[in-house]
Amino acid sequence: MRVEIWSDIACPWCYVGKARFERALETFPHRDGIEVVHRSFELDPGRAKDDIQPVIPMLTKKYGISEAQAQAGEENLGAQAAAEGLDYRTHDRDHGNTFDMHRLLHLAKERGRQDELIQTFYRANFAEERSVFGDDERLVELAVSAGLAEDEVREVLADPSAYADVVRADEREAAELGANGVPFFVLDRKYGVSGAQPAEVFTQALEQAWASHSPLKLVQPAGQDGAEACGPDGCAVPHRH
């Protein structure tokens, strides 16, 4: 069964929500049968690559709140992250364009390293001092540490069209599914979970989606190998006694 997660590296609730989902998945009895795919969603798609801004001023302008309110929100996020065992810097983080990171995540998907790269990006953005924005060398360093080949990473970053179409396709699909915020989880293309819900909600969603996904189980009367039926070779003719 496939679980698709629309998210953005700049989204702190995506960072927290991923940890909560993984906590639910860890105890899910059918976890080995779950394929997780990360999909692209930009919170600030119109931002120029070189337009990098500290988080607190960005929040005050975007939401019309005071710096004290914005900082209180960051402190709350820090506490939520800590509860999931995540490091989170509540001061002096940057905000910027994430398009190149999404392009690299699609390369990572092809190489079987997508989960490793998105977690590396999250940790770098929310827990490490050095910014992930506006610095291709920083992205190369992070992608290589997640298991990607340096020459491939540099090739993608040097070509603005590489994986651009699939990023935009993910974003269009999110809109079609009704996702106007992230994180957004889609289970088996039947069930959606919006936001960084508690692990118990993800457990319930996994159980419900798995129950409807599971193959049909046949009920056979005791002591009987099968019953009369027609198949591709025709219908068995009953024997007369």
Rank of each mutant, 00 (worst) to 15 (best):
F41Y: 11
F41H: 03
E42G: 00
E42C: 01
E42N: 04
E42Y: 00
L43Q: 03
D44W: 02
D44Q: 07
D44F: 02
P45Y: 01
P45C: 04
P45D: 05
P45W: 00
P45V: 02
P45H: 03
P45S: 05
G46F: 02
G46A: 04
G46L: 02
G46M: 03
R47F: 00
R47W: 01
R47H: 00
A48C: 07
A48S: 11
A48L: 13
K49L: 13
K49F: 11
K49I: 06
D50Y: 11
D50R: 08
D50P: 06
D50F: 05
D51L: 08
D51H: 15
D51N: 12
I52F: 10
I52A: 07
I52H: 01
I52L: 07
I52P: 01
I52V: 15
Q53I: 14
Q53S: 12
Q53T: 15
P54C: 07
P54E: 09
P54D: 09
P54H: 09
V55M: 09
V55C: 03
V55P: 00
V55W: 01
I56C: 00
I56M: 03
I56L: 12
I56F: 00
I56H: 03
P57A: 10
P57D: 08
P57E: 06
M58N: 15
M58Q: 14
M58R: 14
M58A: 13
M58T: 15
M58H: 11
L59Y: 07
L59Q: 03
L59F: 08
T60D: 07
T60R: 06
T60E: 06
T60V: 14
T60Q: 08
K61W: 09
K61Q: 13
K62A: 09
K62D: 10
K62F: 10
K62E: 12
K62R: 12
K62I: 10
Y63F: 15
Y63H: 12
Y63T: 08
Y63R: 10
Y63C: 05
Y63I: 08
G64H: 10
I65G: 01
I65S: 02
I65R: 00
I65F: 04
I65N: 04
I65T: 03
S66Q: 09
S66W: 04
S66N: 09
E67K: 11
A68W: 02
A68P: 05
A68G: 10
A68Y: 06
Q69C: 08
Q69I: 05
Q69W: 02
Q69D: 14
A70S: 06
Q71F: 05
Q71P: 01
Q71R: 15
Q71E: 14
A72N: 07
G73T: 01
G73S: 00
E74D: 12
E74Q: 14
E74N: 15
E75Q: 13
E75N: 12
E75H: 11
E75M: 10
